[in-house]
Design a protein around this nucleic acid. Structure first.
Lengths: 349, 349
DNA sequence: GCAGAGGATGTTATCGATGCCAACAGATGG
DNA sequence: CCATCTGTTGGCATCGATAACATCCTCTGC
């Protein structure tokens, strides 16, 4: 047993409350669970006793006895990306509102084994549902085993047999960005993509390519970054050296900052010489020079939606997984301009 | 009882493993807890049975029985600031490495009552320790009650009787920034502070003021923002209108981006006309134009340190709280320049 | 060869709350 | 006035694992 029985410091239990209130422990349980069949007066007495003793129900015991943990687990990659923070915030908010606790398991890499380990940790916690907020290109038997045992929602757009998906329509995001640039009169649009193993990166690249093809434009070879500003910078240096580049669709705002920086350094002006569009609409997008045209993603909403779907699925495991998606939105700022626009003099001569 | 007893779908229990292995449940427990006094052969038999049945220990039961949850709780503000993400990452990493699970309780505001609610949720979870990663200017009896009951580490630099503190030396951060600007020959340094209720904001302001006073320089009235780039922008508009401003110390990189943006728009060049220093060293600091001189904060290290201290405190509740602090580091980039430097022509005339 | 130390294992009581069922009270109705 | 029903409440077993204690067994050392 955990604590010495006689010790006075031991926190009060339900029986203690029952004794003080002059009822049985069972009745205390009923009051605390909001069971309807309890006389009003009894309820008041019990609540008074609870208050007096500063009693709190022991979660471990409830969980053991009832089999419910009221906890959902979240698997994320251990990064400081804006998107991760925003999605997580949304999840936490929605979960708390629904009376659920959030337990986090982060992984340092996207290795199948790392994800398995994270899932394993959550399974040990007895979570009722899992939100898998990492790209999952290669599933594995062990992963499937977990997702079959515990209701799971995937956020990145990947999917498994036993998994429901909530995702932003990334192809649409790419389409909006590319379309915008073409509409400005650019002959074609170059692309700095995210890492291949991220499904959202792949979806954006596909959307970009499809838009160009539909418009009958040449499709330049896409570059690839790793989401970091540094990789954007490297990509920017490459792009700066290609004279015919006049428009770039960058797969994330953070990389876009790096691209713009590199272009600046190489003497290519944004947006006069080259237009740049990002994705995410991070808070800083509006406050850099030039402010960044980008495709806003409803991260918070996505987190909330994931939780809503997950809890519905938890409540009714038989329900058919029904994919949901939320729409991105183009935010036009100052990093894009019509093709071949006369270069305005911005600084003092 | 939670699950129907006879059902075959019920996950295997320790007794099931014991039966298969031909030992008692207690022995299984000992094997799984790494108890030394178990014959090697028995251990192997048990592990084989565990493997065969796909057995996992029930955390709720362990917790109830042993009184330990191996979970720590983190209270944070629900924001998407870089600092929050970075600290949280550090905490999660360290906690996982130590075999602990992290349970998150976020609050939307800094109200005492909101924080109390968050703590209450964590207490219900039975966490063994709490990391309070929100500024806590006004404590409250209820808060003190929680922090007395559960080992708690505060990260923001605030402190309570029963609370240990891990913090970056913010006064030093401010000193480094201010000193740097003075060393560049600036007559004095203006300051855009963070919200007053954040202790780190207050510490930075104090450090800035002290440095100026020690140097015998005039202390301009500090402006105040809310950490957002937008508030930085507003502050920047004000500063741009004051001719004698040549150096500004901004309390966060995110605000600094806004400040620089505003100065640009008003035709004040950075760093030729005005030097700007931020705090945090967010990833983007290096990739904007001009790249931002800033004071780097070891966020990840801080999270890890907090966990280390917390676990030490959990292991030995009698140990005296011993404040720890980690040092910030100045990172000089391109947003600062000597005072009165001849303005170089950067753009084509 | 035997006593004693100590390692290996089993037994039992519990941790704190909940589910099911029985008991009991007051209300309704014939 | 008794039978039935609905609303309240208590009793008991139980969830799955661990702590403490009790055993049993196996080596030493004399």
């Amino acid at each position: 047993m955990a604590k010495q029985k006689g010790a006075e410091g031991r926190p009060p239990g339900m029986t203690d409350v029952a004794r003080v209130a002059g009822v049985s422990a069972q009745t205390v349980s009923r009051v605390l669970s909001g069971h309807p069949n309890v006389r009003e007066k009894t309820r008041a007495t019990v609540l008074a006793a609870v208050e007096q003793l500063g009693y709190r129900r022991n979660n471990a015991a409830r969980m053991l006895s009832s089999g419910r943990s009221r906890t959902i687990g979240v698997v994320t990659l251990r990064t400081t990306f804006y998107s991760r923070a925003a999605v997580t915030s949304g999840i936490e908010h929605a979960a708390q509102a629904a009376g659920y606790t959030v337990s986090t398991a982060t992984t340092a890499s996207l290795d199948t084994s790392a994800i398995e380990a994270a899932l394993s940790r959550l399974a040990d916690q007895g979570v009722e549902g899992i939100i898998l907020s990492v790209p999952l290109t290669h599933s594995s038997p062990r992963i499937e085993q977990f997702t079959r045992a515990v209701p799971t929602i995937t956020i990145d757009g990947s999917r498994t047999d036993a998994t429901e998906v909530v995702a932003v329509d990334q192809a649409l995001a790419a389409r909006l960005a590319t379309r915008h640039l073409l509409d400005l009169g650019h002959e074609t649009v170059w692309h700095l993509a995210g890492p291949e193993e991220w499904l959202e990166a792949a979806a954006r690249r596909d959307g970009w390519r499809a838009t160009l093809e539909e418009a009958g434009r040449p499709v330049p070879p896409p570059l690839e970054g790793d989401w970091s500003p540094a990789s954007g910078y490297r990509g920017g240096l490459v792009l700066a050296r290609i004279p015919e580049v006049t428009a770039v669709f960058v797969a994330s705002d953070e990389m876009a900052f790096g691209v713009i920086r590199a272009l600046h350094e190489q003497g290519r002006r944004v947006p006069e010489d080259i237009s740049v569009v990002g994705v995410d609409d991070i808070e800083l997008a509006e406050y850099c020079s030039p402010s960044l045209t980008t495709v806003a993603q409803p991260f918070g909403q996505m987190g909330a939606l994931a939780v809503a779907h997950l809890l519905r699925h938890v409540a009714d495991p038989g329900a058919l997984p029904e994919p949901a998606s939320v729409e991105p939105r183009l935010v036009v700022r100052a990093s894009t301009a019509p093709a071949g626009a006369p270069a305005p003099r911005r600084e003092r001569p």
